[in-house]
Write a protein that binds this DNA or RNA. Structure first.
Lengths: 344, 344
DNA sequence: CTGTTAGCGCATTCAC
DNA sequence: GTGAATGCGCTAACAG
């Protein structure tokens, strides 16, 4: 306790926080002694306990932390978050939300010292969601899950996906495959039943797959093949793409994400299938790599999502605010990976 | 206080943290009451105050937070950090270190609740460094500054840069330009004097520039032109590249970073200067885009740096450890952006 | 195994 | 203006 040693007692608190409530001279003396003693100023933990404010926002991310730095969408999202001006004064705490959360680990992570939570793309019933909710702090969910009574920022995945499917339909495609990432965390891959889609835990993926399916009522020659990759990464996507292309004859593939679509492109090239002449491919997200690959896709702005969400959370933290739902626009960006199906 | 209401008092702490020290029945009752009262379990702030542990690591980044998500190097670094296994249990707190830190803001940020600091590429006398040091927590610096008594992870920027310059010399270049990012935070741009280089605040940049200069003793036709961009981003780099190319006749440019080198490439293309026939360009870092642009550069692994640093810090946090200095290897990667100078 | 007590460092109220 | 006293919520140590 610096207070004992040097000059006075808890007036040192004023010296740091309320300069006007203490004489300049006193202040000087206090700082001098602090310097001498190597006192670093108010301890954050004590302050946090007393004031209830921490000065940090939490960002809860699926899977491991490293996921966030591999996924282009997450990267853009964080860029958007970081662009919110007020955040210059606030720290951003990255909270990993492992899929298989053992209770202890959950408790561990739940000690996160933050003033509010940003949740990004967690499956609907993820244990971390409950932990976060229990804390009673402001919460803004991005993409999912949609929590009653809490703010939400996202897009209309269903309509956006439908518009992509309609684009294929208009071009004349009748044999279509759909590539899904991870409908449930049970590690299943391969062809997917309608029931499994209904039970999907990931609202974004579910909406996209349903949107992709919707326009193909009677129009298809056969029910569209929906294949599940079991994950979001390129490797799993590539394997699923190969499985789909090898098992089914399709003239077009609707992928749940751009990363998956790029995997389809590569798998097709590998097999000598020409895009778009023999196979049309559509992605979702419009990540930077999509333009480079000339991929038709649905554009959404992760940066805008992040910025909106961060702003909402900052507001809610500083003053109790009503829950808001922000739906950002999307665009079908037609590039060179889609064309009418081959005549045959 | 849930304790007052329900069953007993501070034994509820045991219920959460030491299941074996309390009867199962008692535990049940406590959890039931907690549920009823909406008690979220131990409050992180109280726990942090009591135990002195927070469960989070701080990463201090230059400029605004958004810098981190624009700079490819920082992104890779974070990926490396996040790949350290134990970090799955720990949160990562991103701490922005604004260049012009007003005292109040500094105090604000200094309330970061973390168990240790990772410092990435801060200028030598940045105010944030002192704030961090004062806290007395474990610190690992990445790239800079090199703090006596604290761990450090980096590369030998000087030798690596020298090897790049030697490569140019061997090819026969005698008119060389050097592109520096930001030697001091005073916003100056354009041609740089030797004195300004000596005063440089950024140890990495200083080492690189000096390494670039070193091999050109008597060999040059004129003293190498060193141009400063005033920042790290593409726009500033592009402007500096244009200034250099327009003002000086050089057959080669050594850029302080790949981002800057890519800007040189673009500026050259714009002017109809063919690379490598008329102009050789060398970058530094080997970011992913460097390979795509066929840029000769010095490879270093940001991912490895991040991983090493995170591991060192984690160790230091769990048990007092001695300061370590890790120097990671680099490689000159010769690609298509370098060739002998034109005959003339 | 259970209950009691004390103090982590702070910001704040109240007296002076 | 300044000094003393209080409690934020928790955990560790001890006493029962």
């Amino acid at each position: 306790m610096a207070r004992q040693v040097g000059v006075s007692q808890a007036a040192v608190s004023y010296a740091y926080n309320r300069p006007e409530k203490v004489s300049a001279e006193q202040r000087e003396r206090i700082f001098a002694v602090a310097e001498e003693l190597g006192y670093a100023g108010p301890n954050p933990a004590g302050r946090a306990l007393r004031t209830g404010k921490v000065g940090a926002l939490g960002l809860v991310l699926t899977d491991s932390l490293s996921y966030a730095f591999h996924d282009p969408g997450a990267a853009s999202l964080m860029r958007g978050i970081s662009e919110v001006g007020e955040l210059a004064q606030v720290a951003l705490t990255l909270l990993p939300a492992p899929l298989a959360t053992v209770p202890e680990a959950a408790a561990d992570t739940s000690l996160a010292l933050v003033d509010g939570f940003l949740i990004y793309a967690l499956p609907d019933a993820h244990p971390m969601v409950n932990l976060v909710l229990k804390r009673g702090l402001p919460v803004v969910a991005i993409d999912g899950p949609q929590l009653p009574g809490h703010s939400f920022v996202g897009i209309d995945d269903h309509s956006a996906a439908r518009s992509a499917a309609e684009h294929l339909l208009t071009l004349g495609h009748r044999d279509v495959g759909i590539l899904a990432s991870r409908l449930s965390a049970d590690g299943r891959t391969g062809e997917v039943s309608a029931a499994r889609i209904s039970r999907a835990k990931d609202r974004v993926l579910k909406a996209r797959v349903r949107g992709y399916l919707e326009p193909f009522g009677e129009a298809l020659r056969a029910a569209p093949a929906v294949y599940e990759a079991g994950g979001f990464d390129y490797e799993k996507s590539r394997a699923a793409a190969e499985a789909l292309l090898d098992a089914r004859h399709v003239t077009a593939v609707l992928a749940a994400t751009d990363v998956m679509a790029l995997a389809v492109l590569d798998a097709a090239r590998d097999r000598g299938i020409r895009v778009p002449e023999q196979l049309s491919v559509i992605g979702f997200d419009d990540i930077p790599a999509a333009a480079a690959a000339d991929l038709t896709t649905i554009r959404q702005s992760q940066v805008a999502k992040g910025a909106h969400a961060a702003r909402l959370l900052l507001e809610a933290v500083s003053a109790p605010a009503q829950a808001a739902t922000v739906t950002l626009p999307t665009d079908l960006v037609v590039r060179g990976s889609t064309a009418p199906p081959p005549p045959n």
